[in-house]
Structures are given as structure tokens and as C-alpha cells.
């Protein structure tokens, strides 16, 4: 039995355009994601993380290897719609994902394309708006909303397909801190309460720290993989991949370098405060 997302030894090269700086390709990437997991994919620009994301619902097809979504091969054209309804995709720019002039109608877009009866569309629209906490904005025009609100509508629009996997390609990159919080709390809720498998592409460490598993990509390959605690404790490796660990880890790591032996895997403020409190109060 395959994992719900199974990228098996995939490679990809972008068609060469002479002058254009081509985005990173993928080289023999092997990633499995289990049902109900929340996985964050980190990496700097050009690490191949977005290219990977685009393979998960057949926007791109691997030139070597294969991607299976719920056992469906993404290369099989006849499965395209089934794969895309199983694996929803949210993009970076919320403005460029909304189709209709009214929030309600926009969320209805995907179920309309699925040819569902109007009562079922209505049920899904109501349920999805409720899930992302945007019910009171149902009659608004998208361009009157804030970035975080627009992105939550985009998420609702994808949820309306009732997918089991949600792939998000840097959904918070264009948002301010409050917008980021709104979106992240919606994502956590979906994963924890609705059991939706989440693949979050991001360059924000604090978002990755909320995941169950972190995959760090670099130059089209998987460079590091593990729980957030495991990954972020490898401070030297993280830094060599031009990423920054959370400040709590950075602080403990520097103390460690000064010869005070301290555990590094303290990602949250309260965990780190516990460790430092014990450290400072200890009589050596």
C-alpha cells in the first residue's frame, strides 16, 4: 500500500529558455507523506520546493520517476480531474486565485466545475466558509478584503472540492503578520480537526515549526528531514543551507558554543524559558 502522497525518485528539468534564469530542477527526489500528516517543506528560493509542489497535482509531470496521489499516477491524463480534486492547491498570491466578484460565488467555483447539484454546492460553500471563519464576508467583493482574508477564501475555494490533501505553495509570503496568523490557524485547524493532509511550502521557520515533519530542500534534493526539533537542532547544517533556525535555538546553540552544554531542541518560547530557568538557577 502506497502512502497518500508518494513521489518516487522523481527528476525534472525545466525546458531551457536561453536567457531566462531557469528555476531549480529536481534530482532523484523521494518523498512519502502519510494520511493526516502535516509536512512543511523548507528551502531558499531556487531549492526546488515549488517545483516539487507543482508535481503533486500534475501541474508539472516528472521527467523521471513517478508521483502517486492516493495510488493514482499523475502521468495518467484520464485521472487528472480525480487527482486535482483529491489534492487541492493554494498559491502565493491570493488575488490571482479568486475568480468571481462575490466571495460566495468564488468558493462555489470548483463544485460548479464538478457538476454538483445546486443544493450540494450551497452546502459545501457554507461549510467551507464556516471552516475558514469567513461566513460573515460571504456577500463581499474579494477586492475589498485584506490579504489574509483573501487567502482564507482561496483556501475555502479549494476545500470545496473536499480534498484529502492540501498543498500550499508559500501561502503566507505576501501577507503581513496578522494575515499570516489567520492563515496558519486555519491550516492547523484543517489538519487537526478535519484530518486533512497538509503539505506547506514555506520559508518561514516559525510556520515550519508547527508541522509534524520538516523537509529541507536544496539544489533540487532533499537535504534534511525529520521532526522540527530534529531538523532545527542541526544548526550548522541549517545555516549552511542559508536558512535561519528559530532565535531560541540560535541562543541555546551559541551558549553551547561558549561551553555551556544545553539541549538545542527548544523551539517554543516556553520550552526555552524552562531550559534557561533551570540553567540559570542551577548551582554549578
Amino acid at each position: 500500500m502506497r502512502s497518500i502522497v508518494s513521489a518516487e525518485d522523481i527528476s525534472y528539468t525545466y525546458p531551457q529558455d536561453e536567457n531566462q534564469a531557469s528555476p531549480a530542477a529536481l534530482e532523484h527526489v523521494d518523498i512519502k507523506i502519510e494520511k493526516g500528516e502535516f509536512v512543511a517543506v523548507l528551502g531558499h528560493n531556487g531549492s526546488g520546493k515549488s517545483t516539487f509542489a507543482k508535481h503533486l497535482n500534475a501541474i508539472l509531470l516528472p521527467s523521471g520517476g513517478a508521483v502517486y496521489i492516493d495510488n493514482m499516477d499523475t502521468r495518467d491524463q484520464s485521472l487528472l480531474l480525480a487527482i486535482r480534486s483529491r489534492c487541492g492547491m493554494v498559491f502565493q498570491n491570493p488575488d490571482n486565485q479568486l475568480v468571481a466578484t462575490v466571495v460566495d460565488e468564488d468558493v462555489a467555483f470548483a463544485p460548479e466545475n464538478m457538476g454538483l447539484p445546486p443544493e450540494e454546492i450551497r452546502r459545501r460553500v457554507d461549510a467551507c466558509l464556516e471552516t475558514v471563519g469567513m461566513t460573515e464576508y460571504r456577500d463581499r467583493a474579494p477586492h475589498m478584503l485584506s490579504g489574509g482574508q483573501k487567502q482564507r477564501i482561496a483556501i475555502a475555494g479549494v476545500l470545496a472540492m473536499e480534498p484529502s490533501i492540501l498543498v500550499m505553495d508559500e501561502p503566507t509570503a505576501m501577507l503581513d503578520p496578522s494575515g499570516r496568523r489567520e492563515v496558519m490557524s486555519a491550516v492547523l485547524k484543517l489538519n487537526r480537526e478535519k484530518g486533512i493532509t497538509v503539505v506547506l511550502i514555506t520559508h518561514h521557520m516559525d510556520e515550519a515549526a508547527m508541522a509534524q515533519r520538516v523537509i529541507v530542500m536544496s539544489r533540487g534534493k532533499v537535504a534534511l528531514e525529520g521532526t522540527p526539533k530534529e531538523v532545527f537542532s542541526k544548526v550548522d547544517e541549517i545555516k549552511s543551507l542559508s536558512l535561519l533556525p528559530p532565535q531560541t535555538v540560535e541562543l541555546l546553540w551559541r551558549l553551547d558554543k561558549k561551553g555551556y552544554s544545553l539541549p538545542l531542541d527548544r523551539l517554543s518560547v516556553s520550552e526555552c524559558a524552562d531550559t534557561l530557568e533551570a540553567f540559570l538557577k542551577a548551582k554549578d
Binding site: D206, P246, Q247, T248, E250, L251, R254, V269, E277
Partner: peptide, 26 residues
């Protein structure tokens, strides 16, 4: 959003550790 170290120092200060809470860099 104040930096994470600032929040850490506020937390430590609230636990009675005599640290300046106005720290903002690692």
C-alpha cells in the same frame, strides 16, 4: 510581532529572573 528572543526574555522576567526585558537581538 516582537522578536522571539524578546518574548523569551519577557517570559523569563515574569518568572522572576532579573533580566532586562528590552532585549531584541540574539
Amino acid at each position: 510581532d516582537v522578536p522571539q528572543v524578546t518574548r523569551l526574555f519577557m517570559e523569563l522576567a515574569s518568572r522572576g529572573i532579573p533580566l532586562s526585558p528590552s532585549v531584541y537581538t540574539v
